[in-house]
Amino acid sequence: MADIEELASRIAEKLPELSRHPNPVKGYLTLKLEDAAKLPQAAAALKALGFDYLEMISATDWLGAVKPEGYIRNPNPIVFLPEGATPQSVPSATPGFPYRPSFELLWAFADLAAKAWVFLKCEVSREAASVPSLSGLYKGADWQERELFDLMGIRFEGHPNLAKILTPDFLVGHPLRKDYVHVKDRFDE
């Protein structure tokens, strides 16, 4: 694997507007993109630098602890638990942790020949969760963006076919949002 500092200086020459992220992905070079609208330019510059492999697109909802209403909880399927016990532990919020109403998107680009990885992070607000699509630059972005749209509800502007991909048509909401509440459907009975 390529050396992180060397890689950082190589990218900084071409992309001075990207700063090192204060909260990096452990062991990998993580850069911060301030303005989501600048994503296509940054991605194109990275692609020109040799990062032509889009390894992953992910997103984190920083709203806080996950809501228990997002899960199907009754009837209790674990027979060893006492009557009325909750089958899963529901996490609580960590005191002092900077939760905030925003999505943090993460793109991982790889330069296969140089064995180098770079992660790009960008924060967008939950209300207007929309970023430009990379499907024109990387065909691999197509389904990954559809997955995030389906599960997180993030819009990727310019995607040719931003439709649901994993969840069924009747499912309401975006399940990986922390405030997702499950609406009962005919399969819950």
């Binding site: 992905v25 390894e55 992953m56 992910s58 997103a59 984190t60 909802d61 602890a65 532990s89 996490p91 609580s92 919020a93 960590t94 942790f97 939760y99 993460l106 991982a108 691999g140 389904w143 990954q144 997955e147 990986l176």
Partner: peptide, 23 residues
């Protein structure tokens, strides 16, 4: 690949799977 986020709780705050078959 697995992208894992922790906020200090006993459960992962976020788990993303980069599934090769999917891609």
């Amino acid at each position: 690949g697995i992208f894992l986020v922790s906020d200090g709780q006993a459960s992962p705050y976020r788990m993303h799977v980069r599934a090769p078959s999917f891609l």
